[in-house]
Design a protein around this nucleic acid. Structure first.
Length: 462
RNA sequence: GGCGCGUUGGCGGAAUGGUUACGCACACGAUUGCAAAUCGUGCUCAUGCCGGUUCGAAUCCGGCACGCGCCUCCA
């Protein structure tokens, strides 16, 4: 069996992955807070962990991997946004979740019909969260103060281990004031009271709503058990979110270790700078798709950078990626996917080295191994029927075909007659109409490009 | 101020002690009436700076510079 090695943030080392139960490999990834369209940065973890999911399924079998990615549908940003737009919270979270599904599917992250993928909504797990909070209180790890329930970081000596901080350091670096009801400034909220116009649920501490972190602990436990294999997310979540998840889960289940392997992807930049609204370089996945950048191109650009390095989105990269993919699609036009080449799997198994996997695909393409290229690309979620359609030649009618061949023949005749002015005019005209003609020793062959324009062709025939 | 991450050829981007990554771009050659496409060759022995360990370092250790992220119940 292929050995998978992963960089574990918990130990800061690349470690051999050994699942608790090879018959049920379990991973949890922090999903979106659904208050707006996913921006490009939100898409990176979705794609990265989709590749990991594909790899695990390849190695352990599709029936033996469980993937949980949550939807955060209770959150103060959601409350604010719904009010701003004058719509209900339910409508906001429902439509935003649908957008997320559509946009991610365009990038090849699509789990519709996959019984091993679970997408729990926070609002559906309130009782489990309340139960976990009660358990934490009972164990002396949490306390009630002014209608809030707070986690006591001092009750968990290992607090800060994941992110490499000590509670004292963090307090020293803390910038602002601290809620007076906290015993320790680093204590964080498990439950908070809701005003009458805010969403809330009845609880032993009154009507309120959960803090952000508890949902992941409660849902991971409900769906994967107190201890499971992999927990992933963006490295911006490492602190405080994941640190707090660990504290909650490990205190609720001292006999367990929660997630054994922690994986964090680095952040995304745009043209060398942080994507931000103030710099004017902020855009959503949908913005790019609407501009005509194919989802497959976005995915390819993402995978060209290793997940643990900052990724820079540039227009140049997108253009290069589109060119490469076009050539590969042309090479594989009539190919059936073969076995997934070992070089591709080996690269992925080495800490998801997607750039090395892509290099392996380049070699396969260079060798003309269409079956291997196609299979390898699909292992990365590229060149699937759903994603590759953009690169397909437009439909041609027999009339168009006849017209093109007539023009090509006319050019050939002109060349035979050494009427190069006419031959070149025809060649340039055909090219301008979006038909690519390649002269081979066996004669001219042609294909349509995405810019194909039948009107220009008609004009040329006059 | 604290913690963490990064810095490889023109560009992108692999490689955790020992031969050319790979891709893109560009240049030249083959081919062509000229091109396109294709093939070949070159740029390409490149590793932010300074020191250390080692027979040998992009790779390990220390320091520095630059860049980035996180550090409040705003997430």
């Amino acid at each position: 069996m292929t050995e998978i090695w992963l960089t574990n943030t918990r130990t800061r080392k690349k470690e051999r992955f050994e699942p608790i139960d090879p018959a049920n490999v379990r991973m949890y990834v922090c999903g979106p807070t659904v208050y707006d369209r996913a921006h490009l940065g939100n898409a990176r973890p979705a794609v990265v962990f989709d590749v990991l999911y594909r790899l695990l399924r390849h190695v352990y079998g599709a029936e033996h991997v469980t993937y949980v990615r949550n939807i955060t549908d209770v959150d103060d940003k959601i409350i604010a946004r719904a009010k701003e737009r004058g719509i209900s919270i339910e409508e906001l979270t429902r439509t935003t979740t649908e957008w997320y599904h559509e946009d991610m599917a365009a990038l090849g992250v699509d789990y519709r019909g996959d019984p091993h993928f679970h997408e729990p909504h926070a609002t559906e797990y309130i009782p489990q969260m309340i139960a976990m909070i009660e358990r934490l209180i009972a164990r002396g790890c949490a306390y009630v103060a002014e209608g809030h329930v707070l986690f006591s970081v001092e009750s968990y000596p290992a607090y800060g281990q994941l992110s490499g901080r000590s509670v004292d350091d963090m307090i020293a670096g803390a910038r602002v004031e601290v809620a007076p009801y906290k015993r320790n400034p680093m204590d964080f909220v498990l439950w908070k009271p809701s005003a009458p116009d805010q969403p809330g649920w009845e609880s032993p501490w009154g009507r309120g709503r959960p803090g952000w972190h508890i949902e992941c602990s409660a849902m991971a436990e409900a769906l994967l058990g107190p201890e499971f294999d992999i927990h992933g997310g963006g490295n911006d979540l490492m602190f405080p979110h994941h640190e707090n998840e660990i504290a909650q889960s490990c205190c609720a289940h001292p006999e367990s270790h929660f997630a054994r392997y922690w994986l964090h992807n680095e952040m995304l930049q745009v043209e060398g700078k942080k994507m931000s609204k103030s710099l004017g370089n902020f855009f959503t996945v949908r913005d790019l798709l609407d501009q005509g950048v194919p989802g497959e191109v976005i995915r390819f650009v993402f995978l060209q950078t290793h997940y643990r390095k900052p990724m820079d989105w540039t227009a140049k990269k997108a253009a290069e990626a589109a060119g490469v993919l076009r050539r590969w699609h042309a090479l594989c036009a009539d190919a059936e996917a073969g076995e997934v080449p070992a070089a591709v799997i080996d690269a992925l198994a080495d800490d998801l080295n997607t750039p090395a996997a892509i290099a392996a695909l380049h070699r396969l393409a260079g060798e003309g191994d269409a079956a291997g290229l196609l299979a390898g690309a699909r292992a990365l979620g590229l060149m699937t029927p759903a994603l590759g359609a953009w690169a397909a030649a437009p439909e041609v009618t027999p009339e168009i075909t006849a017209l093109i061949e007539r023009l090509i023949e006319a050019r050939a005749e002109a060349r035979r007659a050494r009427d190069f002015a006419r031959a070149d005019a025809l060649r340039d005209g055909i090219a301008a109409a979006g038909v690519k003609v390649k002269d081979t020793p066996q004669g001219a062959v042609w294909e349509l490009t995405p810019d194909f324009d039948p009107a220009k062709l008609e004009a040329l025939a006059q």
